Simulated scan of single mutants.
Amino acid sequence: MIMIAAACGSGKPNQLGYQVVPFEAVNQSGDPMSLSHLKGKVWIADFIFTYCATVCPTMTANMSELQTRLKSAGVEAELVSFSVDPERDDPAALKQYLLKFDADFSNWHALTGYEFNEIKTFALDSFKTVVAEDTSSDQVIHGTSFFLIDPSGTVVAKYDGMTDTPYDQIIRDVKALQR
């Protein structure tokens, strides 16, 4: 866990500084979604897929817990889960999957509608995280981090999305970005 010192002035998280490249997708309702829809908002992103047999159920449960805690704290942030298996994850599959985790779709967007090579390149260019086909199974290899993006579209922090997810730190960091 990287701690941010307040001595830098604002106390806002800024350890990464990756710029999110523009993207076009559709959400779990089939509605268009792009980077411009998130401009001016603080958001948290992760990478999942509905057929995942390993890390995705835990990550999605943790994202659901984060959504609950953000709401309880009265903190607004968008949650964005990018599918790394867009060929199988159509909007209906994503919606059904997230409903198993009591997702509130008012601020949680599960995205698809692009090609596998597009999400692979997007994940690497925007989040410096790997998405790769697992040639020995039907699974997709991907990172397990939650990424915090500021209102300008810059990735400013990442957190463990699997074990010991630092909910309180994420909420503090979201609040700091909203000041």
Rank of each mutant, 00 (worst) to 15 (best):
A45S: 15
D46S: 12
F47K: 14
F47M: 03
F47Y: 11
I48V: 14
C52Y: 09
T54P: 04
C56S: 10
C56W: 08
C56T: 01
M59N: 05
M59C: 04
M59H: 00
T60G: 08
N62S: 09
S64R: 03
S64Y: 00
L66E: 06
R69D: 15
R69P: 02
R69T: 09
L70S: 08
L70G: 03
L70V: 04
V75R: 02
V75T: 12
V75S: 02
E76M: 06
E76C: 00
A77D: 05
A77P: 01
E78L: 12
E78K: 15
L79G: 04
V80G: 07
V84W: 00
V84F: 03
V84C: 06
D85K: 08
P86M: 08
P86I: 05
E87K: 14
E87P: 00
R88I: 11
D89F: 14
D90C: 02
D90I: 07
D90E: 06
P91M: 01
A92M: 09
A93Y: 11
L94I: 05
L94E: 01
Q96C: 07
Q96A: 14
Y97L: 01
L98T: 04
L98Q: 14
L98R: 11
K100L: 10
F101Q: 05
D102H: 13
D102Q: 13
A103F: 07
D104S: 11
F105P: 15
S106D: 05
S106R: 14
S106I: 02
S106H: 12
N107D: 10
H109A: 01
L111W: 13
G113S: 11
G113E: 10
Y114V: 01
E115I: 00
N117Q: 12
K120P: 04
K120E: 15
K120N: 04
F122W: 06
A123P: 09
L124Q: 15
L124I: 06
D125Y: 05
S126A: 08
F127R: 13
F127W: 07
K128H: 15
K128D: 14
T129N: 04
V130D: 07
V130E: 02
V130I: 15
V131N: 00
A132G: 06
A132M: 02
T135V: 08
S136E: 12
S137C: 08
S137V: 11
D138L: 10
Q139A: 14
V140F: 05
I141C: 04
I141D: 03
H142E: 07
T144W: 01
T144C: 10
F146V: 11
F147D: 01
L148G: 02
I149F: 05
I149Y: 02
D150A: 09
P151G: 11
S152P: 01
G153A: 02
T154I: 07
T154R: 13
T154N: 13
V155K: 02
A157C: 03
A157H: 09
A157R: 02
K158Q: 14
K158G: 01
Y159K: 03
D160P: 00
T163R: 15
T165H: 01
P166S: 08
I170R: 00
R172E: 12
V174C: 06
K175S: 14
